[in-house]
Design a binder for these strands. Structure first.
Length: 789
RNA sequence: GGGCGAAUGGCGGAAUUGGUAGACGCGUUGGACUCAAAAUCCAAUGGUAGCAAUACCAUGAGGGUUCGAUUCCCUCUUCGCCCACCA
C-alpha cells in the first residue's frame, strides 16, 4: 500500500505544471473570460507569510473553480517592488535595491510555485522594471497634460526619519505608516494628483460596487463630502474673508469668526497691538505635532485685532485665530455659531464671546452653494531614491518641463550612496551626470540644459494601473493594449486584506481619468472585491519577528504536511473575511482529512487491481477483510444508491459554498462526504467527484487521485432528483419544544391531517396533550408540526 | 464624540426570507491494532440530575413580538474596526 506522501506528489505535479505551462491564459478567446488577481505583494526578504497564503489561496480556489468549469481564466502575478524597506536596506548595507529586489522576487516566485498556485507566469510584472515604469511615467504625463498633475507649495506631512513627505493616507494617528515616527508639518513645493476633481464620481459610484460594505463605508468617510455654502464676510479694512459652512441658515447666530493659524490672509488682519501675540501663537501651533493636537483638545486661540460685518445682522464681530480651524479644509476660515456648534460654543465660553440664539434663515440668502470634501489632493512626491522617477526637468528659471514621451523611460541611475542629501532631497540629487538633460524649451524656443526632478513617485502611483498592464504585460507600444483590455477587463475578482482606502481609491481615480481620455472602456476597475482577514499567532497576538511568534508557511510545508494541507487548513480556519488564530493542532486535522481522501482512492485502485487477480492468497484476503475502509465495487453494489444522495448533496454544497466564498464550510462538506464514504464504501463515481471538488483546495493530491482514477477535472453538476429521498423526518413540537420526530413517506407531507394523526398517536406526544390541543401549526417546508396546548 | 460590526461547548467555528442549536475540525475519554510506540481505525463527548428511558437548563445580560427567537425589535455590557476640532 502507498502511503500519502504529499512532498513527493507535490513535487511531481509542480514539475509537470511547469513543463506544460499549464496555467497560461488563452490570449483572446470566444470563451467567456474570468480575470482574477490578488493585491500584488511587496516582496520582503522574509518571503511569503501565512497572510499571503490565505490571500493567494482564496484567489487560487476561485481561479481553479472557474477553470474547471471551462472558462478562460486569467490569473497573473506581480510585485510591488519600489519602496522604503529595500532602500533602507541599501543605505545600511550598500547593496543596490535592484539586487535586493531581484533576490526577493526570485524567492517569492519560488515559494508561490511551491504552493501550487494557478498562475500564468508569462504575465509576471514588476513595478521597478524600467519596461514597466516607463509606462508609469507615461501615465504621469497624461495627467500632467490635463493639468491633473501639478505643483503646489504648502504645509505637508514630513517624516524626519524617512526624510520624505507623506500623503494624508500614509499618516496613521499622526505617525509615519512605515517607520512609526511622529510626522511634522513642513512647507514644501510638491507634486500632486488632482484626485478631488473626481471626488463626486468616486463617491457616487461606490454604491454600485460589489464590494464589502465596510470598505465602501471607509471610502465614503474618506472622501467626506459636505454640502453647504461659501459666504463672504466684509472686514473693516476693506478686505473680505470667505468661509465655508454646512449651515448657512444659522448665519444670524454667527457672533465671531475664526481663521486657521496657516490662513493666508492672516497678516493683513493684524494690528500693532496684536501682531506679536498672534505670530507667537502661529509658531506654537505649527510646531504642535498631530499627536499633541489629538491629545489636547482644549481650545486655544488669540484675537487678531480685526472685525468683520455679519451680512445678516450687520453687526460687527471679532476675528480670532485658533488651531481648531484647519487651513486645509474649506477656506481655512469659519463663521462661528456658538449657539449651534459644540466647538464654537466651547471656544466662546473659554474666551467670553457672545452666544446668541439664532432663528434660521433661507439657506441661499447670503451665500453661494458650495460642496467641499475631506479628501485632499494626492501628494505624490517622495524625496527618496528607490521609486519611479518623475519625468520632469526644470529650466534655468525653475519652470517644469515634461520629458517627451519618446524619451521614456527616465531610468534610475546606479549610484553608490543611497543616503538622502541633507537638504530634503533624495540621493538622486547627488547623481550629477544624470541630473543634466538637454530639452527643447518651448518658452524660449531653444534647446537648453535642464535639471531633472529628483523626487520620485509615491509607490501607490505604480500600483494604480498594474491591473490593466496584466492584460498585455509585455506590450512595448503602449501601457496596455485596447483589444486585450476589451476582452479581459475590468477585473472580475480582486482579493486582498490591506489598502482599503488609499490604493483602492487611487485605482478608481486613474480608471475614471483614463476612461475620460478614451484609453479605457469602463469607469470602475474592480467588479468584485473580497477582503480577507488577518491570521494571528497561536498566542492570539499579531505575528511579529520581535515577538518570535511567526508561523512560516514554508516550515509547515517542509515539516511534511505539504502545500495541500497548508492551503486547505487556511481555508478551513474560519470565514475568509474574519481574523483567525493559527492552531498548529488543527493543521494536523486537515492533514488527516487529506490522508483519508488518499487512502480511499488508493484502496479502491488496489482492490480493483486485486479483483482481477484470481489467485489471491487467503492471507491477503484476510488482511484485507480486517481493513476498516470498505470499498464498494460494481454497479450492483448496495451502497451505491445511498451514496448518490450524499454525492449530489456534496456537489451542491461545495459549489454553492464557493459561490458564496464560504470556503470553510465547503471543506467541512468534503470532510462529511469522506466520513460517509468510509462508512458505506466508495464507488469510482464517488472518488472522482471527491477529487474534482477537492482540486481547488488541494490541487496536487486531487490531480494525483484523478490520474489514478483515469478521469478529467471537469467540475461536476448535481441532479436534484438525487436530493429528494422517499422518507422524511418530521419534527413534532409541543408549544415550540421538540418532543418527538416522525419518519414518514415524503408523500405524507402533503397530508397535514395524516401527520397530525400520526403525531397524536405517539405516546411521547400524548403525555403533553392531555389537556387538549388549541391549535396546530404545520410548516411543510421545515417538515415541522407544532401543537399548541 | 460619531459610524459600522461582533459575542454560540474546553477551543476554532456551523446553522438566520424565524422552524430539530452546536455541522466539521481540534482537544479529551474509552476501545481495536502493536512486544511497544507512532500512525491508522472504531466509539463517546454542551451543562445539571439519573443505572436508564428521560427531564430541566443553555447562543454576552435584561425586556418585547411570536405557536415557535442564535435569527426580528428595544435597553445595556464587553470586544473589534473605521472616522474624529472636517465647520
Amino acid at each position: 500500500m502507498n502511503r500519502y506522501d504529499p512532498l513527493k506528489i507535490e513535487q511531481k505535479w509542480q514539475a509537470k505544471w511547469e513543463a506544460d505551462k499549464a496555467f497560461k491564459a488563452t490570449e483572446i478567446d470566444n470563451k467567456p473570460k474570468m480575470f482574477l488577481a490578488e493585491m500584488f505583494p511587496y516582496p520582503s526578504g522574509a518571503g511569503l507569510h501565512v497572510g499571503h497564503v490565505r490571500n493567494f489561496t482564496i484567489v487560487d480556489i476561485l481561479t481553479r473553480f472557474y477553470a474547471q468549469q471551462g472558462l478562460n481564466v486569467l490569473r497573473p502575478f506581480g510585485y510591488d517592488t519600489f519602496g522604503l524597506p529595500a532602500e533602507n536596506y541599501a543605505i545600511k548595507t550598500g547593496t543596490a535595491p535592484q539586487a535586493v529586489t531581484k533576490t526577493n522576487t526570485d524567492n517569492f516566485r519560488k515559494q508561490a510555485k511551491r504552493l501550487g498556485y494557478y498562475i500564468d507566469w508569462s504575465r509576471e510584472i514588476n513595478t521597478s522594471d524600467p519596461e514597466y515604469y516607463k509606462w508609469t511615467q507615461w501615465c504621469f504625463l497624461q495627467l500632467y497634460k490635463k493639468g491633473l498633475a501639478y505643483q503646489k507649495e504648502s504645509y505637508q506631512w514630513w517624516c524626519p526619519v524617512d526624510q520624505t513627505v507623506l500623503a494624508n493616507e500614509q499618516v496613521e494617528n499622526g505617525k509615519c505608516w512605515r517607520c512609526g515616527h511622529e510626522v511634522e508639518k513642513k512647507k514644501m513645493k510638491q507634486w500632486f494628483f488632482c484626485i478631488t476633481e473626481y471626488a463626486d464620481e468616486l463617491l457616487d459610484n461606490i454604491d454600485s460596487l460589489e464590494w464589502p460594505e465596510r470598505i465602501k463605508t471607509m471610502q465614503k468617510n474618506w472622501i467626506g463630502r459636505s454640502v453647504g455654502a461659501e459666504i463672504d464676510f466684509k472686514v473693516k479694512n476693506g478686505r473680505k474673508i470667505t468661509v465655508f459652512t454646512t449651515r448657512p441658515d444659522t448665519i444670524k447666530g454667527a457672533t465671531f469668526m475664526v481663521v486657521a493659524p496657516e490662513y493666508s490672509g492672516l497678516d493683513a488682519l493684524l494690528t500693532d497691538d496684536t501682531r506679536d501675540a498672534v505670530l507667537k501663537y502661529k509658531q506654537t501651533a505649527l510646531k504642535k505635532s498631530e499627536i499633541e493636537r489629538q491629545e489636547n483638545k482644549d481650545k486655544t486661540g488669540v484675537f487678531t485685532g480685526s472685525y468683520a460685518i455679519n451680512p445678516a445682522t450687520k453687526t460687527e464681530i471679532p476675528i480670532w485665530v485658533a488651531d481648531y480651524v484647519l487651513a486645509s479644509y474649506g477656506t481655512g476660515a469659519i463663521m462661528a455659531v456658538p449657539a449651534m456648534d459644540d466647538r464654537d460654543r466651547e471656544f466662546a465660553e473659554r474666551f467670553n464671546l457672545p452666544i446668541v440664539e439664532t432663528e434660521l434663515v433661507d439657506r441661499d440668502l447670503y451665500g453661494t452653494p458650495k460642496t467641499t470634501y475631506r479628501m485632499r489632493d494626492w501628494l505624490i512626491s517622495r524625496q527618496r531614491y528607490w521609486g519611479c522617477p518623475i519625468p520632469i526637468a526644470y529650466d534655468k528659471a525653475g519652470n517644469p518641463h515634461p520629458i517627451p514621451e519618446d524619451q521614456l523611460p527616465v531610468t534610475l541611475p546606479e549610484i553608490k550612496d543611497y543616503q538622502p542629501d541633507q537638504s530634503g532631497r533624495s540621493a538622486l540629487a547627488k547623481a550629477t551626470d544624470w541630473l543634466k538633460v538637454k530639452l527643447f524649451n518651448e518658452d524660449t524656443g531653444e534647446m537648453e540644459e535642464m535639471t531633472r526632478e529628483t523626487d520620485t513617485l509615491d509607490g501607490y502611483a505604480c500600483s494604480s494601473w498594474y491591473l490593466w498592464r496584466y492584460a498585455s504585460p509585455h506590450d512595448r507600444q503602449a501601457a496596455w493594449d485596447p483589444e486585450a483590455i476589451k476582452y479581459w477587463e475590468p477585473l472580475d475578482y480582486y482579493i486582498g486584506g490591506d489598502h482599503a482606502v488609499a490604493h483602492l481609491l487611487y485605482v478608481r481615480f486613474w480608471c475614471k481619468f483614463f476612461a475620460d481620455e478614451g484609453y479605457l472602456p469602463f469607469r470602475e476597475p474592480v467588479k468584485r472585491l473580497l477582503y480577507n482577514g488577518y491570521i494571528n499567532a497561536p498566542d492570539g497576538k499579531k505575528m511579529s519577528k520581535s515577538k518570535g511568534n511567526v508561523i512560516d508557511p514554508l516550515d509547515v510545508i517542509n515539516d511534511g504536511y505539504g502545500a495541500d494541507t497548508l492551503r486547505t487548513y487556511e481555508m478551513f480556519i474560519g470565514p475568509y473575511e474574519m481574523d483567525a488564530v493559527w492552531d498548529p493542532r488543527s493543521v494536523g486535522g486537515v492533514y488527516r482529512f487529506l490522508n483519508r481522501c488518499w487512502t480511499l482512492c488508493n484502496d479502491f485502485c488496489e482492490s480493483k487491481t486485486n479483483s482481477n487477480v484470481s489467485s489471491r492468497s487467503s492471507a491477503a484476503r484476510q488482511r484485507e477483510s480486517k481493513r476498516a475502509v470498505p470499498v464498494a465495487t460494481g454497479d450492483g453494489d448496495a451502497g451505491r444508491e445511498e451514496n448518490s444522495t450524499i454525492r449530489h448533496q456534496t456537489i451542491k454544497k461545495v459549489t454553492t459554498d464557493i459561490h458564496k466564498y464560504q470556503f470553510n464550510t465547503a471543506v467541512a462538506a468534503l470532510m462529511e462526504y469522506v466520513n460517509e464514504l468510509y462508512k458505506s464504501g466508495a464507488t469510482q463515481d464517488d472518488l472522482i467527484t471527491l477529487a474534482k471538488l477537492l482540486k481547488p483546495f488541494a490541487p496536487h493530491l486531487a490531480s494525483e487521485m484523478l490520474e489514478h482514477l483515469d478521469a478529467n477535472d471537469a467540475w461536476p453538476t448535481w441532479d436534484n432528483q438525487y436530493l429528494t429521498s422517499d422518507t422524511v423526518t418530521v419534527v413534532v413540537q409541543v408549544n415550540g419544544k421538540l418532543r418527538a420526530t416522525l419518519t414518514v413517506d415524503a408523500a405524507a407531507l402533503d397530508d397535514e391531517q395524516k401527520i397530525i394523526d400520526l403525531a397524536l398517536a405517539e405516546p411521547k406526544i400524548q403525555k403533553y396533550t392531555t389537556s387538549g390541543i388549541k391549535k396546530t401549526i404545520f410548516i411543510k417546508k421545515a417538515k415541522l408540526l407544532n401543537l399548541v396546548v
